[in-house]
Each structure stands twice: as C-alpha cells, then as structure tokens.
Design a protein around this nucleic acid. Structure first.
Length: 673
DNA sequence: GTAGGGTTAG
C-alpha cells in the first residue's frame, strides 16, 4: 500500500494534479491502519503544491507524529513566509527535537528577528548536544547575524574549525545589514583565502559587500570569477551585479549585467531601474518601467518606490501622481515603502500639502516617514510646521534619527532659535548617542549666522574641525552676503577657493555680497578674477511641466518655438512690476557686457522664461511650479515675488537647495538664502 | 517521507 501510494503522489505532483493527490488522501483516511510515513508523504505532497492549510489538516488528523512530520510542516510554513506559525508548531511536539527540527526552529526565530527565542533554541541545542551539528550550528550563527548580535555570531564563527561557504555568507550579510563594513571586510578577506568553493550565495554576499563599499575593483574581479562559472546568468547573482555596478556609479555596466540575463524578474528590472535612478538618469529609469510592463512583468512595491524616486528627481509631479494612482489600483499603495516614496515625490515636487495628505492616510509609518515630513517642511521654509511635526513624532513614541535632527536643527536655524538648536544638538548626542555629522554642524553654522553671530559661526567651524567642509563655509559666506559683512565675507571666500578652486557658487555669493553693500569696486574685482581664472558660470536651466510635456529653458536661450509670445508676456510683466517698484539688479550679471545689454540679459534668465511660459499656458489662479538646476538669482527672486502680486498667482520655485513658495509678494525663504 | 544563507528602497 505504502509504495504504491507514494508512487501515485509523486506522479500527481509531477503532473501538477492536485485532485489525484486528494483522491488518494481520501483512500488513506479510509484505510484500516495508520501509517506515519504515508501521512508524511501526504504532508510533503500538499506542501510542494503550495497548499499549506491542507498539509496542516493532514498533520492535525494524525494520531501520532514523528520528527519528520513536524519538520515537513515547519518548512512548508517557512517557504510561505509564515515563520511565526512554523515556530508555534513546536508547542504540539511531545518528543525531543532532533537536529532537523531544531535548525528549522532556529531559522524561524532568525526570520522574525527574535533574539530571545533564538537564544532559547541555542541553549536547548547545547543541552541536547546538538549545537555542533553543522546545520544547527549554521542556523544559530545566521540567527545571531539576523538579530543584530554580531558579537555572538563572531564567537560561534571563531570556535568552529571548519566552515563551508554558508557561515561566511551569513557573516558577511550580517555585518552589511548592520552597517559594520570593517567586519565584512575582514570576512571577505579570509573568505577569498580560505574558502575554495564559493556557492552562488557567496557571490551575492560579496557583491553586496562591494556595493556597500562602492568597491568597483573588487566587484569586477568577482564578476570575472562568476563569468568562469557562468553564474552571471543566475538571476540572484545577476541582480547583485546590477546593484553593485549601480552603486559604484557605473550605470552602463549595470545595464550590461541586466541585459545578459536570460530570464528577468521584477527584482532584476527594479535593480537596473535603481541603478539608473541612483545615477540621476531618471528618464531612463522611467522608460525601463514602461519596458518592464510591456514585457508583462508586474511591478511590486520596490518598483513603485524607484519610479516615484525618479519622479522626485525630476520634480515630475504629474508622472508621480500617475504612479501613485497606479499603485493605488494594484493595492501596493498601502506599503510603507510606497507611501514614503510618494511623500518624498510630493515634497521634492514642491507639493508639501500633498505629502502631508499621504502621510495622514498611511496605515503605517516609520521614522523615515516622519523625517520626510520634518525635512519637507523645513525645505519649504515652514519651520514652525517642521517643529510641530517633530513634537508629534515624539508623542507618537517614534525614536528620532540622524536625519530627523538635520530637519530639526535647520528649522531652529530658520526660526532663529539659537538656544533651542544647541539644546537639540545636545539631546541628540547625549540622550540618543548619535554622532553629529557635517550636516548637523552646517545647520549649527547656519543657526549662528541667522542670528547674526557671524564671528561665533566662524569659531564654530574652526572648533569642530569642519574647516575642510565647503558647505559649512558657504553657509557662512551666504550670511556675509545677507548681512553685507564683506570683510569677513572676503576672508571666507578666500578660504573656500583654497579648498575648491574656481567654485562658481562662491563667486556668485561674493559678487552678490558686494552688490548688496553697494561696493561696485568689489563686484568688478570678482568679475576680473573670474575672467583671469577662466571660471565660467554653468548655464542656468529651468523647466516647467504643462500638460504632459516638460518645457526646458536655458538662460538666454531663444530656441523655444513660442519665444515670441514668451518675450511679449515678459515685457508686459516687467512693465507692470516696474510700476510697483522693480529695479533690475545688474550686480547678479557676471558677464562682461555693456550696460544696455544687461537688462535684456536679466530678462532672459531661464526661470523668468519658464514663468512667462507657465503664465501663458495655465488657467487663471493655478499654482505655477518651476524647477531650476542652480540657485535662483537675486534679481529673479525679487521679480518673481512682484509678479506673484500683479498676477495673483502662487509660484513655487525649486532651486538647487530649497523651495521658494512665493505668494502675494512674500517668499517662504524670508529672503534669507 | 526531512535542512540552512541570497537579489530590488532609504
């Protein structure tokens, strides 16, 4: 009976015929005597067919079971991701665990990241004398890696003499997952020496290590080794290669690794999209999304997140909206990852209200969501709202992170809350043990500058060893410009130009500073210096989306087909704002041109062209959103504020650093930028 | 009739 039945089950599985198996099941139930092995075969059959509930039914109906029955059901649960249920099965076991069941139990605790349960299993293994069993030992080692207790993992790793690739793989991934790159460097080194036979997972792990370190040289060597064994065709290894090249800023190589894959799945597609996005090739990433859908591959939550991040990079609000709607239809919208990506997209596209709306509707949120809200408000010049969000975050018992404090400190800076800023820096360091980074120090410099305490700001830079940080110095120089402190400004600019010769941002700030202080001799000097050193301004580019099209404008570029209309509109606008006090600010013109040309030059700044175009092509009262690659210039800032008055429009300009939300002649940047 | 680690986000 048993042999025949097993043969039937095997055939039924091979033919994918579930009903044949069920028919046999019925006969087994009617049979006079109970056979454990046969019932185990039934469990195995249902499990292989992906019918875990039926497997469980068989299990529950058994008058007695053995270790194999338990193990079969546990692995069925594990392969469908139901690790808690797998672990819970131990409660019905009324006999001692063997090495099979024990390693399944340990791996369940590893998946749910339960250090406590994992440790209990480990001590059980020690008492039962099973701790040295290779599978148990590896499972325990892996459990400690997953549960972020690398010190326990290291103890096991060091005490066992002979290891296969498995243990090395676990150790590398454990160190990588917890950001301990020095640890993974050690393991990878000894692995290249001691482990002869790498398995495919080893390649994936080592490539992940290379990706984290952006170690393209080692990555390419691993690639070469993989080629010898034709492993570049393996979906996992291939995706890891795509990721490694992408993170090493080699989008083209990433694409080659992708193209070579004979079978592509949603992960490999998403990996190559990610590679493009991380290298700022947003349009290509979005094109890949379309290609993927054409191939009939369904996007998952990661794919949507990457697509939305590309939209964020382009500030492509409409496309982002479309992806959001599409994610809503597929039900993937509720994923944390997608919600966060949507918030990010709205925030980077200048639509902070929409970001807030998404945040409020998210079923689950995490520290990243809170950070997006806080930094989003801060970038939009809404420091009060940012601080409110921060306090709500604390009330919600979410633990602030490194990024949280970047938002908090920059909000304190915007509000001129010097004491609060230092208080929060202290909380961050003392209470949360977060080591402040450049971003925090730069915020503190900005904080002191905002309060007009420029000398203290300079001292702060010197005292905190961030003298080599151009961003910190630039923040100080910016304040010198705002406060017209050209003595300090000149010194600071020298300092920056020593660190980064020909830094165009510095020349612009310096020139603006002299202009604001009415020091025309200074402006002339800066221009001369630039000419002598051959420094050229990067062309300003602005873009605006109208309908489904993105219209791009470069300064002085007159190639747009509707240039005539745009010029006419601009003339009109300039006349109107001159009537309410606009005076062109020639100081921002860094080119050596005649005075009479300067007004025309200013008029053709890319943001003004984009704005005029937007005013022509959008309905009355609609908000206009403009993106710019550089920082908005002082003249345009003044002009756009006045244009918002004469047209009654809300105008949002995203420049290289922040948002300017301009409404009724007032900008959220408070003219401090 | 039984086993483990892996790729995509920030």
């Amino acid at each position: 009976m048993r042999h025949a039945a097993v043969a039937v089950l095997r055939a039924a599985y091979a033919a994918g015929d579930l009903s044949k198996g069920k028919a046999l099941h019925a006969r087994v139930i009617r049979a006079a005597h109970f056979d454990v092995v046969l019932h185990n075969n039934l469990i195995s059959f249902y499990a292989k067919c992906g019918r875990v509930r039926l497997a469980r039914k068989v299990f529950d109906a058994m008058p007695f079971r053995n270790a194999v029955s338990v193990n079969l059901l546990m692995s069925a649960y594990a392969s469908s991701g139901r690790h808690k249920e797998s672990f819970a099965l131990l409660r019905v076991v009324d006999f001692g665990l063997n090495e099979y069941v024990l390693s399944a139990a340990v791996s369940a605790t590893a998946h749910v990241r339960s250090y406590d349960m994992g440790r209990q299993c480990h001590s059980y293994a020690v008492k039962a004398g099973l701790a040295e069993q290779p599978y148990v030992c590896n499972a325990v080692l892996n459990m400690y890696c997953q549960c972020a207790h690398m010190e326990d993992a290291v103890k096991i790793f060091e005490n066992v003499s002979s290891f296969d690739a498995f243990a090395f793989n676990s150790m590398i991934n454990g160190f990588l997952d917890h950001g301990q790159l020095d640890g993974s460097v050690r393991i990878v080194r000894s692995m290249t020496r001691e482990v002869e036979k790498w398995d495919p997972v080893s390649y994936v792990a080592v490539l992940g290590h290379c990706a984290s370190l952006k170690d393209f040289v080692l990555g390419a060597q691993v690639h070469a080794q993989a080629l010898k064994r034709r492993l570049e065709l393996n979906l996992f290894v291939g995706s890891a290669l795509v990721d490694m090249y992408g993170k090493s800023n080699r989008a083209h190589d990433a694409n080659c690794a992708f193209e070579v894959l004979p079978e592509k799945n949603v992960v490999s597609w998403t990996a190559v999209m990610t590679a493009y996005t991380q290298n700022e090739l947003y349009e290509d990433a979005l094109q890949l999304f379309l290609d993927m859908e054409m191939e009939g591959v369904q996007p998952n939550e990661f794919t949507y997140a990457v697509a939305l991040n590309s939209c964020a990079g382009l500030a492509a609000l409409r496309n982002g909206n479309a992806f959001g709607a599409s994610a809503m239809k597929t039900g993937l919208w509720a994923h944390l990852l997608v919600g966060n990506a949507l918030m990010n997209m709205y925030s980077k596209s200048g639509s902070i209200d929409d970001a807030d709306r998404v945040f409020m509707s998210m079923p689950l949120c995490d520290v990243v969501s809170w950070n997006l809200m806080i930094t989003g408000y801060a970038h939009h010049g809404l420091a009060r709202e940012a601080m409110e969000a921060f306090h709500s975050m604390l009330s919600a018992a979410e633990v602030p992170s490194y990024v949280t404090f970047v938002g908090v400190l920059s909000s304190c800076a915007q509000l001129g809350l010097v004491d609060e800023g230092f208080y929060y820096l202290n909380v961050m360091m003392k209470e949360l043990g977060i080591i402040p980074g450049k971003e925090h120090y730069t915020c503190m410099v900005g904080l002191l500058c905002r309060a007009g305490r420029l000398d203290e700001a300079e001292q702060f830079i010197v005292n905190n060893c961030i003298c080599t940080d151009v961003v910190a110095w630039r923040s100080l120089l910016n304040s010198c410009q705002v406060y017209r402190n050209y003595g300090l400004g000149h010194r600071v600019a020298e300092q920056i130009l020593q660190l980064k010769p020909n830094d165009i941002g510095t020349y612009v700030l310096l020139s603006n500073m002299y202009a604001k202080a009415n020091r025309w001799d200074g402006v002339v000097k800066v221009r001369k210096q630039m000419r002598e050193r051959g420094v050229r301004k990067e062309p300003g580019v602005s873009w605006i989306q109208v309908g489904i099209d993105v219209h791009v404008f470069t300064s002085e570029d007159k190639v747009h087909p509707q240039m005539e209309q745009i010029t006419k509109k601009l003339d009109e606008l300039i006349d109107k704002i001159k009537a309410i006090g606009y005076v062109p600010n020639f100081a921002v013109v860094l080119h050596d041109i005649e005075d009479e040309q300067k007004e025309e030059h200013l008029m053709y700044h890319s943001e003004k062209l984009a704005l005029a175009f937007g005013l022509i092509h959008t309905p009355k009262g609609a908000t206009i959103r403009i993106m710019k690659n550089l920082r908005i210039c002082d003249d345009c800032h003044v002009a756009i504020k006045l244009i918002s008055v004469v047209t009654g429009r809300k105008i949002v300009v995203r420049d290289a650093v922040r948002f300017h939300c301009i409404d009724g002649g007032v900008c959220t940047c408070d003219d401090y930028w």
